[in-house]
């Protein structure tokens, strides 16, 4: 795979079809491959890598890269293509400046336990590339995933148990902002947490409750747009299962408005910015709240 990808990337560069290639660069250790832009064949040969530690979703990097002059080639794993579509729908990626190469993915390994697949890969939602210009390897199918099992478990807890669970997890947050920075849905010009005028600005995690709110606000912020790529949990240095918050929203959206997968198509009208007569009535809040 890696060899074919390097050859193809070199070919695209030399033919002038693309000016840059966005891929993964080998890091110091086997597991810390990093997103990187390549412009010459020698660099590609020496440093380009694609193996089971290339979890980083390159779509987010296209926000900046596709805004530059010329064309950028990018390698996208199946789940990355969902973010890619979603970002196109939000006008954050200029599609014309991108040459998208879908690459087969058999799941990424967990950096903490290299024998295991990452949680998000063990409960993979789709092996299907939903957008690409060409494909290297095979594109699979949308899978019958068990990704909502943990959400269901949380839903079945009493509110006290659930509060304890989340306090336990979120209290470890150090507000490094990695989850926000890596998130393909976090593409505001200016994040409210960085804007002193917003009233919700850059609060230090002085109050144990504030970091909880940071994550809850962020989950609301990406609701309906989150493709469940799982990058937030991958990059968290404290291993907080942040993706569970997003999955709860996805599950609720599925239940209230019908099955919806953000990024499956370049759909500009997700359920939260659309209106149909069958929509849940606002009273659902009270009904569910009381249950």
């Amino acid at each position: 795979m890696q060899k074919v990808m390097i050859e193809r990337a070199a070919e695209l560069l030399s033919s002038g079809k693309v000016n840059r290639v966005l891929g993964w660069r080998a890091g110091l250790f086997a597991h810390d491959n990093t997103p990187s832009v390549f412009t010459d064949a020698a660099d590609l040969q020496a440093n380009f890598v694609y193996n089971e530690f290339c979890g980083a979703n390159l779509s987010k990097y296209l926000v900046k890269e596709s805004d530059k002059e010329g064309t950028v080639a990018v390698f996208l794993k199946p789940c990355d293509t969902y973010s890619f579509n979603q970002l196109i729908a939000e006008h954050k990626i200029k599609r014309d400046n991108v040459y998208a190469i879908g690459v087969q993915c058999n799941g990424m390994k967990d950096v903490n336990d290299r024998e295991k697949l990452e949680e998000r890969c063990a409960s993979c939602k789709s092996r299907k590339h939903v957008a690409y210009d060409e494909l290297i390897g095979e594109s699979g199918e949308i899978l019958d995933s068990n990704r909502f099992d943990m959400v269901e478990k949380l839903e079945n807890m009493t509110s006290e148990e659930r509060f304890e669970f989340w306090r336990g997890e979120l209290s470890r947050c150090v507000r490094c902002n990695a989850c926000r920075n890596v998130c393909p849905a976090c593409t505001c010009e200016k994040c409210i947490f960085d804007n002193p005028d917003s009233g919700s600005a850059n609060k230090a995690p002085a109050d144990p409750f504030e970091e909880n709110l940071f994550h809850i606000i962020r989950a609301f912020h990406v609701a309906g747009r989150c493709t469940d790529c799982g990058e937030c949990s991958r990059v968290c240095p404290e291993n907080i299962p942040l993706h569970l918050l997003n999955r709860k929203f996805i599950k609720d959206i599925n239940e209230l408005y019908g099955e919806y997968q953000a990024g499956e198509t370049v759909n500009e009208r997700g359920p939260l910015v659309n209106y149909t007569q069958g929509d849940a009535e606002p009273s659902v809040v009270y009904e569910r709240g009381n249950s």
């Binding site: 010009e189 200016k190 910015v273």
Partner: peptide
């Protein structure tokens, strides 16, 4: 200065 051009407001 804050608008990121996602056009969700236009939809709703």
């Amino acid at each position: 200065m804050l608008c990121s051009g996602c056009s969700q407001c236009e939809k709703v």
